Amino acid sequence: MEAKNIDVSVVIPLLNEAESLPELVNWIAKVFTEEKINGEVYLIDDGSTDESWDVILDLKKKFDWVHGIQFLRNYGKSAALQVGFQEVKGDVIITMDADLQDSPDEIPGLRKMIIEDGYDLVSGWKEKRYDPITKTIPTKLFNAATRAVSGIHLNDFNCGLKAYKKDVVKIIEVYGEMHRYIPVIAKWNGFAKIGEKPVQHRARKYGTTKFGLERFVNGFLDLMSITFVSKFKKAPMHFFGLLGSISFLLGSAGAFWLLIEKVYLSMNHLHIQREVTDQPLFYLSLTAVIIGSQMFMTGFIAEMVSLNQSNRNDYHIKGKTD
């Protein structure tokens, strides 16, 4: 008998969420049943130190559509999502956090926007947030900066509740801490139809948040990184070569000016006791020429080195349910 196609795959990264997992998975099961969705859930244990993996094994016994993957150590949310994306079989992939702040009741609406409205990606927008001001203000600044750089008009890039076409998650690559910029990565990979859906944000019921203020600093650094890589990944010489050329030409112009000045003074018998090497312009010009040459060499080397290393997304998996 041929197996049914999977309608929806739910990918849930988690770290020390043993208390919330049973309630979350039972809630998802209720939605699957009520909406007649043939779904699956991937619980990615990102190096938990509590009983999360034991809870996942118990849930697997109760629901055959629950799949668990356990990392040997904590790799981060991007790693968990990437591994989950590699495993999923559904036509629509939905990601959510494991802390019960994302509501599984949003699954049917997100699925509809992908299947019926034809979006490549739909990002949740938590209009009313139950977060402290130390988190909401940096979030607003982060979202404003990402909108300005990417040209994608989303209110909440960092919302964990998102939906994707299967093609999107199978093509994009998420690594480091780039999960915040999945809409940006998707757009630069050709998936331009990106939508947004207001979603419910619930107060945390169990445990404490795993994120501190440092993630916003890292977020802005990641934005610079992904912008550079996305624009110059195929042709790094366009970046390094341009800057190198400008620096080299400025340095050469400075040296040429000193040479002309020296010749002019000699031809007019103006014996000014000033050596070329005594002038600050000489050292500035020399430095600019050296930097320009180095940037040129960096561009050539970068052209030869592949950014898509084969082992970028190799993670040590400690356990797997099936």
Rank of each mutant, 00 (worst) to 15 (best):
V88K: 02
S48T: 08
D64I: 13
G47K: 12
L59F: 11
Y42I: 01
Q82E: 14
G39D: 01
D50Y: 00
F63W: 11
K61W: 13
I56W: 06
V66S: 02
W53L: 04
G84F: 10
Y75R: 03
E87M: 13
Y42V: 06
I56M: 00
K62A: 12
E35M: 10
I37D: 11
V31S: 07
L43R: 02
G68C: 01
K30F: 14
T49H: 09
I37S: 11
D54M: 00
G39F: 11
G68K: 01
H67F: 13
K62H: 04
I37M: 12
I44Y: 03
L57F: 13
L81P: 05
D91G: 13
L59C: 02
Y75T: 06
R73P: 07
D54V: 07
D45N: 15
F32Y: 15
I56K: 03
L81Y: 11
G76C: 11
A80V: 10
T33K: 12
I44R: 03
L59N: 03
Q86L: 13
G76T: 02
F85A: 01
I69G: 04
K61E: 15
V41A: 04
I69E: 01
A79E: 08
K77T: 11
V66W: 07
E35A: 15
K62F: 03
I44K: 06
E40V: 06
W65F: 09
S52P: 03
I69Q: 00
E40C: 03
V41H: 06
E87L: 15
G47E: 13
I69L: 12
V92D: 04
D45P: 07
S78E: 02
D45R: 08
Y42C: 03
V66P: 08
L57G: 05
K62P: 04
Q70V: 08
V92P: 00
I93V: 15
D50G: 06
T49S: 14
H67L: 07
A79M: 10
N74P: 02
V55G: 01
K61G: 15
K89M: 14
T49N: 13
V88M: 11
F85E: 05
K77V: 11
W53I: 00
Q82F: 11
D64M: 10
D45T: 09
D54L: 08
A80W: 09
L72G: 14
V31Y: 04
G68L: 08
E51Y: 08
V55S: 00
K89N: 14
N74L: 09
G84P: 12
K60M: 00
L43K: 08
L43A: 00
G68H: 02
F71Q: 03
G47W: 15
L43S: 07
I56G: 06
K30A: 14
L81A: 02
D50A: 07
V88R: 02
D58M: 13
K30P: 10
N74D: 05
S52D: 04
D91F: 10
N38A: 10
L59V: 13
R73V: 12
D64H: 11
E34N: 11
G90C: 09
N38P: 04
